[in-house]
Write a protein that binds this DNA or RNA. Structure first.
Lengths: 215, 215
DNA sequence: CATATGAATACACAGTTGTATAGACAACCG
DNA sequence: CGGTTGTCTATACAACTGTGTATTCATATG
């Protein structure tokens, strides 16, 4: 996967720093007050310990680095989803445990999830599309889970896809604001978020019932 | 309010460009691919037709300009709220008309609302706090409306404040993504958003009922 | 009118940025 | 071994940034 290991016997000097090392350097620079879109090529190169021009050997653009970061964050997100799914068994706990897992990861992972949460609204088109792709993925997984859960509980959902979209966007929006808050507030926000998600699910079920009764 | 009109009879030259003119110039520069936080002092001054240093006569920082822009956008948002309230009479139409007004303004106003929607996640702390203030305002107004509506319909809400928060964050999140889409998609998004909001309201009412029946 | 005073300016400076060019180094192949 | 090839570095450039200092300009007041 990395550049260092993908050399297929061709001649030439071995790369001193791997593509992943540059990504790691960029990750060290981003923080609550530093967005990926404001990273400069020279800055990243300096942090990685290479000459500015060497950057081009690994990425064509600085935007390409940004997209790579988002992809990485996306993989982290999928891991979260997997963990949440393993912990989710009953209907009562699926909302709670999913939200909890999300917020826990938000506190632990710091950087990666932050990128995904906050950089969706700024940056180039390629940038936004990369984030949107990850959100769509999250949304689709959630939609499948919702349908599966509804069936197990003999309940019906009004427009499951829309329900999933609402939950996804809400969780990410609330998560984005939670990032800037001190960690002590996270439990409170987790509670609030769980209630909010339950509202959406309950509303979707209620609307499905009404639609069925009075078409 | 403006600098030009607040001169209290002291000696000295009249300001050539008003503070508002600089704000207008900054507004001309922001767009779907240009965030307020990336505006440079020189760039704004150039657009306003003044020397770079003259900027300091009106704003201490470039961040101060950003906050002024957010305040302006906030006033625009309050106007939207007012318009939506006037159009909202029955329960059926209050969600629909509010969402419609919001999306209409999103298409018409372009710049101002965009700032409020997208710049909340990046920038300095003063920046974020200014946006958060406006969101809180929106949230409080909405909460009052929700309670009023629930009373009129003999319904109850589960945690009205949380309900308002969920709706607010969702509307803003969806609105932020809608900005980047072509205007033809706006009607579709408006429909989706209206359904989502109704889900939250319905869920809040359902949860209030269940809580009342089975405490 | 003269003068004080605030506004706007011109110029300068040190810093940063992205990138072009050219050379030095190291690994592989024949 | 020599040659080829790809990677890295050094240097340089023009454009840009924020801001400091000194100067000019216009105005209200004495």
């Amino acid at each position: 996967m990395s550049v260092t290991s993908s050399r297929k016997g061709t001649a030439g000097r071995k790369p001193a720093v791997s593509r992943d090392a540059i990504i790691a350097a960029a990750l060290k620079l981003v923080g609550p007050h530093r967005s990926v879109s404001t990273l400069s090529l020279r800055e990243v190169a300096r942090e990685a310990g290479i000459a500015p021009n060497s950057f081009y050997r690994h990425f064509h653009d600085i935007d390409e680095l940004a997209v790579a970061l988002i992809d990485l964050a996306g993989r982290s997100l999928r891991q979260i989803i997997g963990a949440a799914r393993q912990r989710a068994t009953t209907e009562r706990s699926v909302v709670r445990s999913s939200v909890e897992t999300f917020m826990e990861q938000l506190g632990a992972d710091e950087k990666l999830l932050h990128i995904l949460l906050r950089e969706g609204t700024v940056g180039s088109d390629a940038f936004k599309q990369a984030v949107e792709r990850e959100l769509q993925f999250f949304e689709n997984e959630l939609c499948a889970d919702l349908i599966r859960l509804a069936k197990a509980n003999d309940a019906r959902l009004h427009e499951p896809a829309l329900t999933a979209k609402a939950i996804t966007r809400l969780v990410f929006a609330i998560g984005a604001t939670a990032m800037d808050l001190p960690r002590e507030k996270h439990p409170e926000i987790t509670d609030q978020l769980a209630v909010m998600v339950r509202m959406i699910v309950a509303g979707s079920q209620t609307m499905a019932q009404n639609r069925a009764i009075r078409p």
